[in-house]
């Protein structure tokens, strides 16, 4: 079977977007700097994996621009999402459920 791929927009990016679901496997990086990355665990299509180490507090870079800050250390192949990356604008983003994206800060309203 052909290797799955992840798309990197700019060579300056430290993440790439998976074009298929990946599960602990090596994927090809299309665009950007090219090469491959070994995905840690199960990451879904459309989600991002790190292609370089990102220290806590460092910018997560996509499109050659900061899309947020790492809230903990991230190693290459790691899923990068709400659990380890926070917006610099939207204070609610890091309170959202990591799987579904649903808000958790307004749960009391359903009581």
């Amino acid at each position: 079977m052909r290797m799955k791929s992840a798309f990197q927009v700019s060579p300056d990016d430290n993440v790439a977007t998976l074009l298929a679901d990946a599960d602990g496997e090596l994927v090809a990086i299309v665009g950007g700097k090219g090469s491959t990355v070994s995905v840690t665990g199960n990451v879904k299509m459309g989600h991002k994996v790190a292609t370089a180490p990102i220290a806590a507090g460092d910018f997560v870079i996509k499109y050659g621009m900061a899309i947020g800050q790492a809230t903990r250390a991230i190693v290459p192949g790691d899923w990068v999402h709400l659990h380890n990356c926070a917006s610099n604008c939207d204070e609610r983003s890091s309170t959202l459920d990591g799987e579904t994206g649903a808000p958790t800060d307004t749960i009391a309203a359903y009581d």
Binding site: K48, V60, G68, H81, S87, N88, G101
Partner: peptide
């Protein structure tokens, strides 16, 4: 912000990321 639960579930992490796209 102009990002919905479906955007986050689909892999977009922050409004900055959605904005750049």
């Amino acid at each position: 912000y102009s990002a919905s639960p479906g955007n986050f579930a689909g892999g977009l992490t922050t409004i900055e990321e959605k904005s750049l796209g």
